[in-house]
Amino acid sequence: MRVLVVGAGALGAYYGSLLSKAGHHVHFIARGNNLVALQSKGIRIVSDIDGFELNHVEVSERVPDSFLPDIALVTVKNYDLENALEICHRIGENAAILTLQNGLWAHEAAAHSFPDNLILPGLTYATLTLEDPGVVRQCGGKPLIQFGSNNGITEKVNFFAVAFKESGINTQVSENIHVNLWEKFSFICALSSVTSAFQSSIGSIRDNPLQWNSFCEAMKESVGVARIYQPDLPNDLLHIHLENAKKLAYTSRSSMLDDLLKGRKIELPWLSEDLILRAKKVNFLTPMTLSLVKSIRESNVA
């Protein structure tokens, strides 16, 4: 299988490396220091589960004319998605496109740009950090990819799922991926906004009654909006989310907070600000989320 990985950050480097290690023909798209590191040293995965090194990888800034992938994994952050899709315009209409961004809009943007391609809306649960260019640290449990298709579970969808599983990737094919996307979206909106607004880990927030109350209120709002758009979500989703938040490692925090503290762009427009816009369309009030977003936007770091 020929695989194009658009964005060789933590997510793309990790999943792309597993596919390459399993014998698939993988080409990475990278830029800047990451491009230089991959060209010179390859990729190193640091993990208690499946750490390994790839001393040589195919990598460039653009898709080579001769490389026609079977599937493109788009693993950039939301703010780089338009550029990533522009890069993908050279892949041909036979390639499937798997989007793994946080939020709800990436697969829609891909479908708009590639109406003739198979679009696989997807998500991932993974604790991955790019420690240095070309060096990815994986923590916690085994990362998971979920994806589906607007056309149902077709033979081609199953083909990719089997290829991923045989490469050591924990993979689930979903019959209703949009429910799964909203389930994750509702959780990550609260987690990212609260940890970023207070610039604290989830453990520190749990220890602070006022901050934990803010988290609970933000989660109520995000779940409330999600259930309007996706009635098939579990009835006890709020309870599930809060219990999962209690189980997170004390030092866990959102990638948005990491980006804030490092002076990078943040995904707020595609997470909590998107939630607020969708809430307004259905006349659902989100005062806590509005307050958290205002705090983040007023932050000296932001």
Rank of each mutant, 00 (worst) to 15 (best):
A8Q: 03
A10R: 00
A13L: 08
H24I: 03
F28G: 01
R31L: 08
N34Q: 14
V36P: 08
V36F: 12
G42V: 06
I45S: 02
G51Q: 12
P64D: 13
P69E: 02
L73M: 06
V74S: 09
T75H: 04
L81P: 00
I91K: 00
F114W: 05
L118E: 01
L120Q: 01
G122M: 05
A126Y: 00
T127E: 14
L130C: 09
G134V: 01
G134M: 03
V135N: 05
Q138N: 04
G140Q: 01
G141K: 11
K142Q: 13
I153N: 12
K156W: 02
N158C: 11
Q172Y: 15
S174F: 12
W182C: 02
S186H: 07
F187Q: 02
A197F: 07
F198I: 13
Q199T: 15
S200R: 09
S222W: 06
V223M: 07
A226L: 06
Y229Q: 13
L233P: 00
L233R: 09
L237K: 12
N244T: 10
A245T: 08
K246F: 12
S255P: 00
D258P: 04
K262N: 15
W270L: 06
S272T: 09
D274T: 10
A279V: 01
P287S: 05
M288R: 05
A302K: 13
